[in-house]
Every structure is written in structure tokens, then in C-alpha cells.
């Protein structure tokens, strides 16, 4: 499948401050794309460029094989990090207005809103004012408004902030469902566990530059250190440990088990295979634990940012 969205060499300066420096990303059709980076890295600027809120100084964006144009507004649903609603407007009126701005007819918007209100248990909210709702309730309204026009591209900037765990799961499931129905999702967040859970592609932006991107699995492979976490019960632990540190790079570790075995992280050298380690271990005692350490998104994030 091709890319729904491509940004090519996008740069943006605000006065002397460079917000984006030659950033390119490819967002594959039907993926959930994690846009990661520390605060102030330039994620929001990139998202605003995609939304045509900010015009880039150079570079261009392609959506659905076309250069970004005015009419693409209706193909994008955007939930900004700084979000809110008109406080004194009624929920229904407001949702209708925002949907119409995205190009839906009033009748169509009304129909779809009825469906969504029903789906997210918001039946009697239509005539309530936003200021009467809790923060989480307002977030639900906002989510609906973002997805109502069934855009091809959904952009969520920190979508889970302000949700209680139950609603967060509800929204997460809705995002996954929308992806399954064909939408492509760009997902900007600091919460690495949700990246791990949802994203299949990521790009990491740091100090206005993209420093990493690709499939999450590929990146993990790239960042893995050939390290294994092992647990072994041996009769002579001391001898085993000396022997291990002669053959491999060993660091202490701890994890929860039922027994009281020797627990170590073992990094393999280039010419060593996991089987070498395993057969060595089985010859020395009873192996109770043998796991390859796969870097978490969090590890990758921290390491990539540090390396730059």
C-alpha cells in the first residue's frame, strides 16, 4: 500500500527560531503513525503544516497523491493538544457547526451525530452547554467532532490527556476501529505505552530535525543490542558466573520469578548466536528464563534523543 501522506523537506522558521528543519515523513495508508519527540521539538508545527494552519517556508506536503490544497480540509480530522469548545454554546449546536465547517450538510451531520451520541452514551447531552460538562465529557464531544466527517487522515495530538482510564480505553478502541475501517492515523504523544500499543510506524523529531523514522518493528530490530535476560539454577553459581563473564558481556539484572536463581543480562558479541548461549547454559544448569531484550519505544526514544 502506498503513502496517504508525504511531507517533503518541510522547513519553518519563526524569526530566528527554526521550528522545522528539512523534515520529511511518509505516512503509509492505513497505518497508525506515531509522531514522537520531546516538548518543543516541532511536532505541533509539523501537524499545523499538514493542517494548513501554518504555511511552510519551504518543502511541500502530498495528501492522497495531490499537493495539499484547500479542499483537503475535509479529508483531515484534527484533534489539537490545545483544545476546547465554545463554552456557552450547546453541545448539539456546536457539533453541527463544526461539522458544517468540515463540509457536511446539516442533515447529514445531524444523522451522524445521533449515531455517535448513541454509540458513546451521550444521548441527553444535545441541549447541554459545554460549561455544564466535565472535562472528560467535553473531550468525548471533541473526539466525535474530529471524526464525524469520516476523514481519510486523523491527527490526534495527545488524545488521551484528560480522559479517565475507562474513557481512554473507549477512545483507543474507537481509534483502532476507525483504522480498521480504512482511516490513517497520525498520533502525537509522550505516552510511550500507548505508542507501543497502537503505532506501527513512528517518526522521532528532536530539536526541529527528524532523527528517526520507519516501521516500529524495524526500528526495534535496529535498536536491539543482542542482549538476553536469563535465569539459571546451577550447583556452582560462582564458577558459572566467572565462566559467563569470560565468554560474554554480563550485567546484573532483576526480575520476578518463583525461585531463587541467578539472574543476568547477557550481551552477545557479533559472532555469537543465541543458540550458543542457550546450549552453554543448558550444559551448566537448569534454565528457567531466557528472553531477548527488545527495546521499548521508551528506550528508543531516550536513546535516540541522547545520541543526538
Amino acid at each position: 500500500m502506498g503513502n496517504l501522506l508525504e511531507a517533503h523537506n518541510v522547513s519553518k522558521k519563526f524569526g530566528n527560531y527554526t521550528a522545522l528543519n528539512n523534515v520529511s515523513i511518509d505516512v503509509p495508508q492505513g497505518s497508525i503513525f506515531g509522531l514522537l519527540g520531546p516538548n518543543g521539538a516541532g511536532k505541533t508545527t509539523l501537524i499545523r503544516v499538514i493542517n494548513q494552519i501554518t504555511m511552510p517556508d519551504s518543502g511541500h506536503v502530498i495528501l492522497d497523491n495531490q499537493p495539499l490544497q484547500n479542499h483537503h480540509v475535509k479529508d483531515i480530522g484534527y484533534l489539537p493538544e490545545e483544545r476546547g469548545l465554545y463554552k456557552s454554546m450547546k453541545v448539539g449546536e456546536q457539533a453541527l457547526y463544526l461539522a458544517q465547517l468540515k463540509g457536511l450538510s446539516k442533515a447529514e451531520a445531524r444523522k451522524r451525530l445521533a449515531y455517535w451520541f448513541d454509540r458513546l452514551d451521550m444521548g441527553d447531552w444535545w441541549n447541554k452547554k459545554i460549561q455544564e460538562l466535565s472535562k472528560g465529557m467535553a473531550q468525548k464531544v471533541q473526539f466525535i467532532v474530529t471524526v464525524l466527517h469520516e476523514p481519510k487522515l486523523l491527527i490526534f495530538d495527545e488524545p488521551f490527556s484528560g480522559f479517565d482510564p475507562i474513557n481512554a480505553i473507549l477512545i483507543k478502541d474507537e481509534i483502532l476501529r476507525l483504522r480498521d475501517e480504512g482511516a490513517t492515523v497520525i498520533f502525537s504523544t509522550h505516552r510511550m505505552e500507548s505508542v507501543e500499543e497502537l503505532c506501527d510506524h513512528i517518526a522521532l523529531i528532536h530539536q526541529s530535525n527528524k532523527i528517526l523514522d520507519g516501521k516500529l518493528i524495524d526500528i526495534k530490530k535496529q535498536f536491539k543490542t543482542n542482549t538476553f535476560e536469563i535465569g539459571i539454577r546451577a550447583t556452582n553459581e560462582l564458577a558459572l558466573e566467572i565462566e559467563l563473564s569470560e565468554k560474554f558481556t554480563v550485567t546484573p539484572t532483576s526480575f520476578k520469578t518463583l525461585g531463587n536463581e541467578l539472574k543476568r543480562n547477557i550481551k552477545l558479541a557479533e559472532n555469537q548466536s543465541p543458540n550458543d548461549l542457550l546450549s552453554f547454559l543448558t550444559s551448566r544448569g537448569e534454565v528457567s528464563h531466557f528472553v531477548e531484550i527488545i527495546p521499548t519505544a521508551n528506550d528508543i526514544f531516550i536513546q535516540a534523543v541522547k545520541n543526538n
Partner: peptide
């Protein structure tokens, strides 16, 4: 100012110039 403080502005201008 109301649109700014209620933070709806970014949602609006993602649809409107």
C-alpha cells in the same frame, strides 16, 4: 479573546482560513 481562551481556535482554523 473568547475563542482563544476556550482553545477552540485551533479546531476552527483547521477548517477555515
Amino acid at each position: 479573546i473568547e475563542e482563544k481562551t476556550s482553545r477552540i481556535i485551533e479546531i476552527i482554523i483547521s477548517s477555515v482560513k
